[in-house]
Nucleic acid binder design. Sequence first.
DNA 1: TCTGGGGTCCTAGGACCC
DNA 2: TCTGGGGTCCTAGGACCC
Length: 431
Amino acid sequence: MVGLVDCDNFFCSCERVFRPDLMNVPVVVLSNNDGCVVARSREAKQLGVREGLPYYQLLEQFPSAGIVAFSSNYTLYGDISGRIMQILRQEAPDVTQYSIDEAFLHLDGMDPSKLKQWGERLCAKVLRYTGMPVSLGIAPTKTLAKVASKYAKKYPGYRKCCMIADRQQRIRALELFPVDDVWGIGRRISASLQSRGITNALGFAGLPREFVRARYHLPAEQTWRELNGENVIQLECMTVTHKKTIMTSRSFPGMITDPADLNTHVANYAARCARKLRAQQSVCAMLTVFIQSNRFREDLLQYDNSASHTFATSTATTTELVNAAGALLRTIFRPGIYYKRAGVMVSGISSAGAIQPDLFEFDPEARARQVSVSNALDRINDRMGADTVVLGAQQYRQKSADGKSVKFVNAIRRALKSPDYTTRLGTFKVG
DNA sequence: TCTGGGGTCCTAGGACCC
DNA sequence: TCTGGGGTCCTAGGACCC
């Protein structure tokens, strides 16, 4: 059997851990720049707050609903996630973290007749130790465990743990389950199924396998098999060791026309990619920069372009990535465009221990210097706080009104951020 | 005024090879 | 008028996920 642990309204629940006064209050968490709603508490969902709703529209549509909004606080969420995973690893034989708020439990070898009770106790323990409500679905396959976890979440009678053990329970569960809620069935396939009159998961599972394969391709066929009780999605495959691409991108609070400003953003994204690469002991062979205008402003000239650079020798040093990104940006920058978003992506990722040096251009001493500079940056920033030391190209500047002085500004708007309760004692007051 | 960010895998089609 | 066949690799785009 497989278990799926899923935190209830994860980001909102994290905010509530240190704000128990919000326990029955509608809460939402916003994306970067306080742009859109990315998480909603149960109360907010009941009010009809859609996922992805722009914050300004939320204010317009729910002026007096008493909704409390937070900027996203990924430091807090990551830390709480780590604490939950730690408890799961203590209690379950084998755990695969699937996302920041989900983990699969490999439950072979455990007594099936005791799994339900064991699961209830596990969820209660996570709640007691971390303050986070979690739900657990147990079933023969991962896709069915996902189904079960949604029932566990929805109906209090399950005491946070729902198990699909035999054929009859499976049929019943799928019959009452909307097909568009099935893991692996997205918007497109769901729309196509609806047009054929298939609205629940059982209808999908009852289609001929060959038809599903031909019409919806391999991933949907795997979902079909999983719903029919065949375990095809392997836990091992999902154990993410090294990411194959790494991306850092942002939308800007306003719009940008100045190439120097744009360059500062791109330099920071490149530096962040370099940091992420080093964190997983990797190097990249290729770097891509992309810039975009504001797609919501149809009255403005639209522009969307990207360019890539291949390194002679794979690298993860901040200096090399920032330099390459700056050079690429100069090739695609077009004056007169109001830029809204930019990003840096690195790919061709391999292990830092197995670098293939370029035959003609490789300079071991220069490389060693770059690597030690990057390592020093990491050590300082780990200890003193992110972005304590950055390259000159990464500095955001804001001139004073008289133009005589320059100060640093935060590029991201996070006006409603909660304190980093669990990781930075100095940032909030007790009591 | 204000509209998120970061991934994975699959498939089709073109480039290229012998 | 005639102008092969079979294979691999790469890339862009689609679909999905959280």
